[in-house]
Computed example of a mutant assay.
Amino acid sequence: MTNLERCRRSVGHHPSCTICDTQDESTLHVLRDCKFAREVWLYFSPVVYSPTFFTENLQAWLISNIHCHALVSKYSIPWYTFFISILWQLWKARNEHVFNSVPQSPTDVWSKGIFWAHCYMESFLLSPT
């Protein structure tokens, strides 16, 4: 649960983001709007094609990026694979920071996201049909 959700359920004390401490920590904030997450996404610029990437609501943002089949030519991997991998790494980085006091840099998250995307693509290509 995010801090905002914990507060809504009366099991948290403060709804703000523990990383940037500037906004309430919603799911969208953790995955896109926190300055930490934004730095991670901007590493992919200009791959982040959509002019609405940083303005869509959570559902529209997830759907539009999951359905984006653009190829990230530098890595020969579809955007949606990178997108999902980065989401997972952002969530893990947030949890490491909140629960274990282990901060990570945007570069760490980005590098792990690329690694996981490559592993996924390799396993997908090697799996029997």
Rank of each mutant, 00 (worst) to 15 (best):
V109T: 10
I66Q: 09
S123Y: 09
P51D: 14
N57Y: 04
C68P: 00
T55M: 09
V47G: 12
H67I: 02
F83M: 03
C17R: 02
A93E: 08
L71H: 04
N95V: 10
F44D: 02
N3V: 00
K35S: 13
V102W: 02
R32C: 02
F54C: 07
V72G: 06
T81S: 14
L126P: 00
A37I: 05
R94I: 08
R9K: 15
S64P: 00
E25L: 06
D24W: 00
L4A: 06
D24R: 01
E96C: 12
V72H: 10
K35V: 09
V30K: 00
H67F: 14
I66G: 02
T81D: 08
A70K: 15
E39F: 00
T107L: 15
T107G: 05
S85H: 02
A117K: 03
L126M: 14
V109H: 02
H69W: 01
T22I: 08
S50W: 14
T55F: 09
S26D: 11
T18N: 05
C20M: 06
I114N: 07
S127I: 06
Q104D: 07
F36C: 04
T129F: 13
V98N: 07
H69E: 09
H69K: 14
P106W: 06
V109D: 02
L71A: 08
H118L: 14
E122R: 15
Y120S: 12
F99N: 12
N65E: 10
I66Y: 05
C34L: 07
S76F: 09
L62Q: 02
R9Y: 12
V30R: 00
E122K: 15
T22V: 07
M121Y: 03
S111E: 15
E39L: 10
P78N: 12
P78E: 11
E5Y: 07
F44H: 03
V48P: 02
G12Q: 07
S26A: 05
K92G: 04
T81Q: 10
W91I: 07
W88E: 07
L87H: 08
C7S: 03
P15L: 03
T107Q: 14
F44Q: 03
Q89L: 04
L42M: 15
I63T: 12
I19Y: 01
K35Y: 07
D108P: 05
C20E: 06
T2H: 06
D24G: 03
T55I: 10
S105D: 07
Y43T: 02
L62R: 01
L126I: 08
F115E: 13
A37F: 04
T27A: 11
H67D: 12
W88K: 13
R6D: 05
R8K: 15
R6K: 15
W116D: 09
D108I: 09
Q23C: 11
T27Y: 01
Y43M: 10
T22H: 08
A70T: 12
S105V: 08
F83Q: 04
N57R: 11
K92A: 13
W61A: 04
P128S: 13
Q89S: 10
R32F: 01
L58P: 01
E5I: 06
D33L: 11
P106V: 08
K74M: 13
